[in-house]
Design a protein around this nucleic acid. Structure first.
Lengths: 265, 265
DNA sequence: CCAGGCAACTGGTCAGACCAGAAGATCTTC
DNA sequence: GAAGATCTTCTGGTCTGACCAGTTGCCTGG
């Protein structure tokens, strides 16, 4: 295993960094780097505009295809967005989490990790998110979450879309209260990935939607109570437990051990 | 907050999904999607080769610039790699965590999430990784880890490169033992991002490297012992504690609360 | 049998052209 | 004068054809 970067046991013995093999740097790459640098550096703030492609051609003194490939790279990283016909040039979006969720989704999709790992990872992230939120939440956060759970209860069986919207907002509020945007983003990305995989498997298998929503609301109320009293341990446990119960049936039996290992602490 | 996707409380009241606004799909995008689909789907496994660009032009019936922009997107996602003059065409790399760490690094660089969040996230991931490893590790895993810690001790003060190589390998082994590749990849990505940010700040501030290595070895031995006895709680605690002690000084004071909240459980 | 060189690829880049879309200016009509 | 239709001129998206610099492998001359 770990056949990559096996420079660990250098034959030479001398622990000196060898000369790096010089590798050609493509023109489009340097263009992309320059623009990315300006975006990340604060010049070119989100909302501002890049010059038109033909103008960039003049400024960088390269062909248009080079410029376009550079812009494509930046666009696929979510840093800019371009619209045909826009006379103002490409729009700077700034750094966004979309790229991260995209990368996570790819990792999840590749058979590199099965549903078991995905759910296990989500258990970890969500539980820790709860744990932190229980410690750091403000009264304001609590009020907002309470309102969202109320919203879920109202929408209970009749409006599934409103229900899941409120559900997602609740989790976003928790993540916000936990104070860690990164954790929130990853949790959301993994959530999306799990939902994507589950949808793949035939989800028609029984299950009363109304009953499920009712239980979900009850669960959220429990979590909310734990967050209110600052019981970090209990909040984390609730999060793990709920995910386990909800998803264990979808996970292949040989992967269940993973989930059980992640269950208690 | 949460101004995005605010279709939650639809004015219409009817909980029906509205027609989606049709948006033009660029040609390069569809080309990229088709190729990505094949890579993620398992055809075109890592190591295989894409047809030459001029061949793809014929197969997709589009211009070469379109093909090239599509390949650029895939390349910036880390899915393929192309080398000028390679008569075999672009190489399929498969899904890799590099893109993830790149996205994380960008998020970290943009003030969107500071070093505090990054370290906190790493505390969470590493602790959970330890926790799972303590439950699921095999004797084989333990033997491998022991060997790696021994390697660290040997390389102790004289060969820092070998030391950090063994260190990285140890963490990789732990992640492997935890049975969750996703967790491992994220942990690695966050690790890289943290290192990148720390390097940005002037790292010259004192600190005896030899002493630090010695303590690091001791810490790894403790973790190893906890993993051996299956003490999940202790292993997780050790991981959190070590990260906190190692990085707290670099984190801005107003962000330290984040770390402290993540510290104990 | 081997080395040097040639030929046939490859990807990287450039130049120029055309198209459809968007936006503002201009013109027409009431 | 104001509202609407048209026009101009920009934009990005795409295609074509060309050239360059590498890489590879065959192939010939030793």
């Amino acid at each position: 295993m770990s056949t990559d970067t096996d420079t660990g046991t250098d034959s030479g013995g001398a622990d000196r960094v060898p000369f790096e093999p010089i590798q050609p740097v493509r023109a489009y790459q340097r263009v992309a780097e320059q623009i990315e640098e300006r975006i990340l550096g604060g010049e070119l703030p989100p909302g501002s505009r890049l010059p038109a492609e033909r103008e960039l051609v003049k400024q960088f003194a390269v062909g248009r295809s080079t410029i376009r490939e550079a812009l494509r790279v930046l666009q696929s990283s979510g840093l800019i967005r371009s619209r045909p016909g826009d006379p103002q040039g490409a729009e700077v979006l700034g750094v966004s989490p979309d790229n991260l969720s995209q990368a996570l989704a790819r990792l999840a999709r590749s058979s590199l990790s099965g549903l078991g790992e995905l759910v296990q990872f989500r258990m970890v992230l969500e539980a820790e998110s709860y744990r932190l939120a229980a410690r750091l939440r403000s009264e304001d956060d609590l009020a907002r979450m309470t309102a969202l759970v109320d919203l879920m209860e109202e929408a209970a069986p009749a409006r599934p879309r409103a229900f899941s919207e409120a559900d997602a907002d609740f989790h976003r509020a928790v993540a916000e209260a936990s104070g860690n945007a990164l954790l929130a983003l990853c949790a959301r990305a993994v959530h999306d990935a799990v939902v994507g995989v589950i949808e793949g498997k035939l989800t028609g298998s029984g299950g009363d939607a109304g009953e499920w929503m009712r239980r979900s609301v009850a669960h959220h109320r429990q979590v909310l109570a734990a967050l209110r009293t600052g019981d970090a341990h209990r909040a984390a446990h609730l999060g793990r437990r709920a995910l386990y119960e909800h998803y264990a049936e979808f996970v292949a039996p040989e992967e269940r051990e993973l989930l059980r290992a992640a269950l208690d602490d």
